[in-house]
Amino acid sequence: MPELRASALVDAPVAAVAGALLDTSLIAGFGVRVPGPLLCLGDELAGPFGVRLVVTRADLSGVSAAGDFLELHTDLVVTGAGTMVVDRVSWKAVGGVVGRFADVTVGRGMALRVLQKRSALLATRCAELVAARVVVGAAIVRSGRMLAQQRSFPADTAGKWELPGGRVEAGEKPSDALVRECFEELGVPVVVGDQVGPDVPLKRDLVLRIFAAELAGGEPEALEHNAVQWFTADELPAVDWLPADRVLMPALQALLN
């Protein structure tokens, strides 16, 4: 398969770059129909000329989508100067002289223009996410299970599940905000660990940032939600998650495996 490669250095942490890649607004402008505002593992993308792709990767390492005739891969490499974004596009070429001519003059030129435009959009979106307000969430693990809570309001999200957490207040550290939110929502103290997965865009100026956490005592209670429940790695995909939490399934399952 013919392949085109391009790379660009983005002055942003890898979590922000990986989060920007989840924002489907970066590809919707190219005539790609997407199922929602965020890319999720298993999503189907419909492009021009009947091209269909399935998302096969969406995590801190980058994103990939593959179909019968086209494959797209974006790999992220952390460097001392920022995050290197390496794009690879490969496609099935039509045989014969005409096919080779079209491949060189049309296929490669179109792919290069798309990558260049997407690179500019990505840099802008990364800058927005770096400066965005933060909502924190806790991936609390105990005995091979992860804690989730079921929303009771507002009406449009009632009954769906999410990880515990909430907004970081002005002047508050994300880790301190997460300790506060877990005590308010669950009635338990937690010890906050490392970030899990990418920053997930919620709005133009708001991101969800998940951290691994452990209980420091007590038993979680549903103080502000309908219920709390522990789930195994195999059970996580079947849970009716809020969209932003569902995006993080690969990273959350990795914590339990």
Results as ranks from 00 to 15, higher is better:
Met1Gln: 12
Met1Glu: 08
Arg5Trp: 11
Arg5Phe: 14
Ser7Arg: 15
Ser7Trp: 15
Val10Phe: 08
Asp11Val: 10
Pro13Arg: 09
Leu21Lys: 12
Ser25Phe: 13
Leu26Asn: 03
Ile27Pro: 01
Ala28His: 13
Ala28Asn: 08
Leu38Ser: 03
Ala46Arg: 11
Ala46Tyr: 11
Gly47Asp: 08
Arg52Thr: 09
Leu53Glu: 00
Arg57Pro: 11
Leu60Arg: 12
Phe69Asn: 05
Thr74Ser: 10
Thr74Leu: 14
Asp75Pro: 04
Val78Thr: 12
Gly80Lys: 04
Val89Pro: 05
Val89Leu: 13
Val98Lys: 08
Arg100Gly: 13
Arg113Ser: 10
Gln116Asn: 12
Ser119Arg: 15
Ala120Ser: 11
Leu122Tyr: 10
Leu122Thr: 07
Thr124Val: 12
Arg125Trp: 03
Cys126Pro: 14
Val130Trp: 09
Ala131Leu: 12
Ala131Gly: 02
Ala131His: 11
Ala132Glu: 06
Arg133Gln: 14
Val135His: 11
Val141Lys: 00
Met146His: 03
Leu147Thr: 00
Gln149Cys: 06
Gln150Asp: 05
Arg151Ala: 02
Asp156Trp: 12
Gly159Ile: 08
Gly165Asp: 02
Arg167Thr: 07
Gly171Met: 14
Asp194Gln: 11
Gln195Met: 09
Gly197Trp: 02
Asp199Met: 11
Pro201Phe: 03
Glu214Trp: 00
Glu224Lys: 15
Glu224Gly: 04
His225Ser: 11
Asn226Tyr: 01
Ala227Pro: 13
Glu235Asn: 10
Pro237Asn: 08
Leu242Ile: 14
Pro243Ala: 06
Ala244Trp: 05
Ala244Thr: 09
Ala251Thr: 06
Leu255Gln: 05
